[in-house]
Nucleic acid binder design. Structure first.
Lengths: 242, 242
DNA sequence: AGTAAATCATGATAAATATCATATTTAATT
DNA sequence: AATTAAATATGATATTTATCATGATTTACT
């Protein structure tokens, strides 16, 4: 009997978030910080917390989103399926980021798919709550706007890189980006474990090509690998790759 | 004497806009429509109207923007200089669009350069006015947010196209895009006259490659050309290009 | 632990694209 | 109108990247 109670308690804690938004540190990193204490309490009461396992899809391309996700832990990729059947990774989303605001704002179905790259913990906030705050709190709206403006700038940079740089350069920059944004394990390997296919889908190339270039980097002493794990050995030269 | 007065009148009308924002039809097409009559009157009193000639730079990459531009007429390209010295065209801006909001919102220098593709008429609205309205009018902020969300979606699409489609496909789609977005002259040629280099800089390829592919399209009867002007001859097959 | 499936790796080859060279045409300037 | 400069066009060739094939590892599963 007591075990059932413990089980239920843990289960509930996992799936119907018991944390309070007002006290959540995560909100410091995104536009939710612009909300008043009252607004946070209201959101807290109707949000749901979810555990998402590595590889699980959070939402699909074309899906109607009924709210936004606040990422409390873990990393996910945002992808779009191309006509040739390949997924292009458009952005990586980390702890502290919001997920799905774009679609909520434009009231469209999602243009991207979100897939967990490791185990994640997210809070789901219903659309109605977000829209209510967007109506009433200009400070919040402005913060969301700033985030979006920043995403747009980054997207522009990606466009230029895709258009003007070689696969070699793009892959080198991707490794550096992951290194600097998501950090490394104690042994120095990139803490986010991506498949070679993921790398190819970030860079926009064939999986074989990505593998080949990684092998070259290895031969040139720019990186080393242990299984699929990658470690940067010479970041200066990696930055200079042409 | 009378001629000097007429000259001055015309000059003033050109450079210090005498039109009234409240009555301007252009505002229907952008987020300024969310402003109240009073706000529009205020903006009207401090905006300046400018004529920009084809080829002129409106603002450069890295420049501090002191306001936004509302495009009353004409078309311009937004470019970013890549490390290899080539300009990448990231977006084309038309009559009705606003220019520079992103930088104003994030209070950063412009990440893009804006260059007129034909003669333009724009109104410059000082930063202080825009920011004041963003503070006070949540409806306006939300409209700017919607625009930005839309730009972001389009940028995501461009990323995927750049990453996953061939130069041939991208060029075909560019021609169709210009055809459908900016229309054609009476003779059926694209109304926006772009150089082959511009096409290359949209598609993200070498100028020679763009020229070569256009020649192929001509041989295949998909398009025809008169000088640098391009006319779509078979839009269905152009859409099917692989 | 053993087997199937997925992922990674590399070779051989084809296709796409870039680069360099050089005409030819068009536009700009005097 | 003549001259110069710029843009367009095309060939030859080099480089980059994709595709197909096949084997080696790793991972997942029972």
């Amino acid at each position: 009997m007591i075990f059932i109670m413990i089980y239920l308690f843990l289960h509930v804690q996992k799936n119907i978030g018991m944390g309070k938004c007002e006290q959540c540190i995560i909100k410091q990193f995104n536009s939710l910080k612009a909300l008043t204490k009252e607004e946070l309490v209201r959101i807290s009461s109707c949000k749901t917390s979810k555990i998402i396992k590595k590889g699980e899809v959070i939402f699909e391309e074309g899906e109607v989103l009924n709210g936004v996700y606040c990422v409390k832990d873990g990393i996910c990729k945002l992808t779009k399926l191309s006509a040739n059947g390949k997924d292009q990774i458009v952005k990586m989303v980390v702890k502290g980021d919001l997920l799905g605001q774009r679609s909520i704002v434009t009231e469209e179905r999602s243009n991207l798919q979100a897939t967990a790259l490791n185990d994640m913990e997210v809070c789901f906030i219903p659309k109605s709550e977000i829209l209510a705050d967007l109506q009433k709190n200009p400070d919040f709206t402005f913060n969301v706007l700033k985030d979006m403006a920043n995403d747009l700038k980054e997207a522009d940079d990606v466009i230029v890189n895709m258009a003007q740089k070689s696969v070699r350069q793009r892959l080198a920059e991707t490794i550096i980006y992951i290194h600097e944004s998501f950090g490394v394990n104690p042994d120095g390997t990139l803490s986010v474990l991506l498949s070679r296919e993921d790398f190819a889908n970030i860079v926009g190339t064939a999986t074989e090509s990505a593998i080949r270039v990684l092998s070259q980097f290895k031969k040139e002493g720019l990186i080393s690998t242990t299984g699929k794990r990658i470690k940067i050995e010479n970041i200066e030269d990696l930055k200079r790759v042409e």
